[in-house]
Design a protein around this nucleic acid. Sequence first.
DNA 1: CCACCTTCCGAACGATCGTTAGGTTTCTCA
DNA 2: TGAGAAACCTAACGATCGTTCGGAAGGTGG
Lengths: 190, 190
Amino acid sequence: MVTRRTELTRAAARLFAEKGYHGTSVGDLAQALGVQKGSLYAHISSKADLLWEVAREGSAAFHAALDSVPEEGPVVERIRAALRAHLRVVAEQLDVATVFVREWRYLQGERREEFVAERHRYEERFRALFREGRELGELRADLDDTTAALLALSAVNWAYTWLRPGADTDALADRFTALLLDGMRGYATR
Amino acid sequence: MVTRRTELTRAAARLFAEKGYHGTSVGDLAQALGVQKGSLYAHISSKADLLWEVAREGSAAFHAALDSVPEEGPVVERIRAALRAHLRVVAEQLDVATVFVREWRYLQGERREEFVAERHRYEERFRALFREGRELGELRADLDDTTAALLALSAVNWAYTWLRPGADTDALADRFTALLLDGMRGYATR
DNA sequence: CCACCTTCCGAACGATCGTTAGGTTTCTCA
DNA sequence: TGAGAAACCTAACGATCGTTCGGAAGGTGG
C-alpha cells in the first residue's frame, strides 16, 4: 500500500539528493506532492524527520546488502560479493544512497550520533573482510588491511557521484575487485 | 599582505566546509570576522561570489599539484607523485578541498559550467597517466585504464572525509600506490 | 446516518534570509 | 592639511523560511 507518507519520503530523498537538505525547502517538498506546504504537517512533525528517515533507510539498505554476503567461503569471493551488494544499492536507490553518504551530516543531536554509529559499524564489517583475508592467507601476509579497506570503501562511497541507475553494477564491482586483488602492474600471481 | 577580503574568503572556506554552503548564513560569515553582516558587502557583491572564489581556489590548487608531476620518467613514479600531490593539497587546504569536492554543486549558471569543465580537465589529466602506463607497457596490457583511474580518483576524492591536517600524506599516497599497482593478493610480479 | 480518520486548504506566525543604503570612523598619502 | 579610500555600523528592505492552526472535504466502517 502506497501511503501518502511514503510518497513524501520518496520526494524528500529525491530532492535532498538533488538540491541538498538545506537547499530543499518545505515548499519544494509540498510542490513535489502537489499540495500546500502546511499540509505536509499532517504527515510529519518537522523537516528534520524526513532527513532522519531517509538516512535510516540508507543505513538499513547498506547493512541488508552486507547481510547477503556469505559468512563462509573464500574471502576473495566475499569481497567481490560485498562490492557487488554495495554498488547495487547505490544504483537501485541512488537518492537514498546519496543522502546516506553526503547529507547525513545535517542530522542533529542524538540522531546524528546514532547514524554515525551505524555508519562505523558498516565500515567495520567491511574492514573485517580484508583483515580476515590476510589472517587466512588469502591476501598477502604483509597487507595493510586498514588501507586496503579504506581504498575499497572509497571506491564504493564515491560511486554515488558517477554511478547511474541501470548500470551493470555486478560487472563494475568485478572490475574493481580484480584491480584491488591483482593490481594494475603485473598479472595475478595465482 | 593580509587584506580583509582574503580573511573573508578563508572564513567562507572554513564555514562552507563545516556547515555547507546553504547551511552558512551571511550572518555566520560576519560573526567569524567580528563584524555586522551588512559590512561584508564592502568586500563582496554576493554570497555566491565567495563560493565561486573558494571553488576556483580549489581548482587552481589541484591543477598546480598535478603540474608538479614530471612529464617524463616511469609512469609508476608519476602516478605515485600525482597521488602524493593530491593528498597533500587535501591535507594542507582541507577546507578548500572540501568545497572543491562537495560544495561546488551549489554554483549556478556560467560559473558552474566553468567549474565542471575544469574538474573534467583535472580528471582527464589523471586518467592520462594510467592510459600512458598501459600503452608504454609499465602497466598490464589488458588494463581497463578507465576503471583504474576511477579507482584512484575515488580514493583521493573521498580523502577529504577522513584525512586530517598534519597527516603524513606522502606515506599514505605510497600505500595507496602500492596497493593499486600490486594488489592485495599476491606479491609484485616485478 | 453518524462518527471518525486521513488529507488538505488557506491564512498567518515569528524568525531568518541575502541585500541595500546612508552615514561614520580611521588611516594613508600627496 | 585635507582629499580619498577602506572598513564598518545601523537600520531597514522584501522575500522566504519552517511551523501552527482552525476548518473543511472525502472516504470508511459501525
